[in-house]
Design a protein around this nucleic acid. Sequence first.
DNA 1: TTTATTTTTGACCAGTTGGTTAAAACAAAT
DNA 2: ATTTGTTTTAACCAACTGGTCAAAAATAAA
Lengths: 210, 210
Amino acid sequence: MVKVHQSSENLDSTEQRIYTAAVDVFLEKGYDGARMQEIADRAGINKALLHYYYRSKEQLFKRFFADTVSAMFENISMVFTAQLPFEEKLRRFSEAYISFLIQRPGLPLFLLTEIRLHPQLIENTMNDLKLKSRFTMMKLLIHEAIEKDEIETGSALHLMIHIVSMLIFPIVGKSMIMMLLDLTNEQYAAIIEERKSVVPEFVLKTVKKS
Amino acid sequence: MVKVHQSSENLDSTEQRIYTAAVDVFLEKGYDGARMQEIADRAGINKALLHYYYRSKEQLFKRFFADTVSAMFENISMVFTAQLPFEEKLRRFSEAYISFLIQRPGLPLFLLTEIRLHPQLIENTMNDLKLKSRFTMMKLLIHEAIEKDEIETGSALHLMIHIVSMLIFPIVGKSMIMMLLDLTNEQYAAIIEERKSVVPEFVLKTVKKS
DNA sequence: TTTATTTTTGACCAGTTGGTTAAAACAAAT
DNA sequence: ATTTGTTTTAACCAACTGGTCAAAAATAAA
């Protein structure tokens, strides 16, 4: 019988090695470009064994995608639970989000691409997430601040989009940014690091009351 | 003999129909997901004829990619040639860029994805572009303004990234934005339209002198 | 040791993929 | 009408793809 797959198991188990290899290949090549053979090779096993643990490419991908997407969102929402003034929340959020993205720079572009290319593949995952995100995340951050009269009452929606855009796009659009501004890899990395503070300060200059 | 392919020919020629079909399929499915058979079907022709006009999938893709990328960049740089104060340039740039992206919403995500997935495929195109962009585009916009003392001397680099991010990301990250903020398609479209003015005004609030 | 169970493998398969080929249909020129 | 060159097609192919299967190792249970 095929056993139930739990996330916390022997870290060097065949199953884990397969999963790790799959993550690498999917992130690198995307769903369409990923080859089961390559996943098997990188895990150091036979292709048949791959199907023994994960029935199909689709199932393997779905599992990875669900894990990834929830990591991306849950890792972040922590910041919002803290009871802090808007200013401090924004600073911590920027710091946390960019730190997270630096560790997984390929993630957001991967997610956006796969959502567009294979919406049916990830429908279930996205529906789960929709329910969660509706009650957490950014909405709180800004509406709360307006109610508490901490910031100017402009368009909260646009402000949220400004923030998310300035934090995520430089990661997603690395190639574009580097080309447009003619940067080396080191310069690029330094700039991203700077944005942890540059972005919140830029935003605060515009919206802070008093 | 295979004739030379020119861009301005009989608009309903077989060659053009193939090209149009190819553009649609590549944009929709990406390079890996695109199928020569589907391109042929949509062009209403035999697959062999497709190879008669464009030798290979690779060549067909390269042609499309080069066209696309130059359209994306050249369409924009016009704004910068005009002799106008920074404020006005920024407003026109935002308006022009978002208008362009509304008409081709799939383009930036497509470009970023293919650059990451198939850098070797598009090497030549990108090198050409690098040379061009080094002397045009955004660099001028902001450095000029600083020299003319129109805006505060902060980090010009970050300011450029802020602007590009706020303009492009909402298009690239449509699915993410819609989910995060729980928007309908109509609400989303309205917000993008608003950003033509919201983004430049937001930026100007922060950097304008006096 | 034997038996039962799980893990791993090599060989294989049907369907798909980008691409080719030889011949047919068509058009233009003589 | 015949020749010449171009455009289009049907049939085909080798390579690859995700996936299967029966049997062999390896491991655990008796």
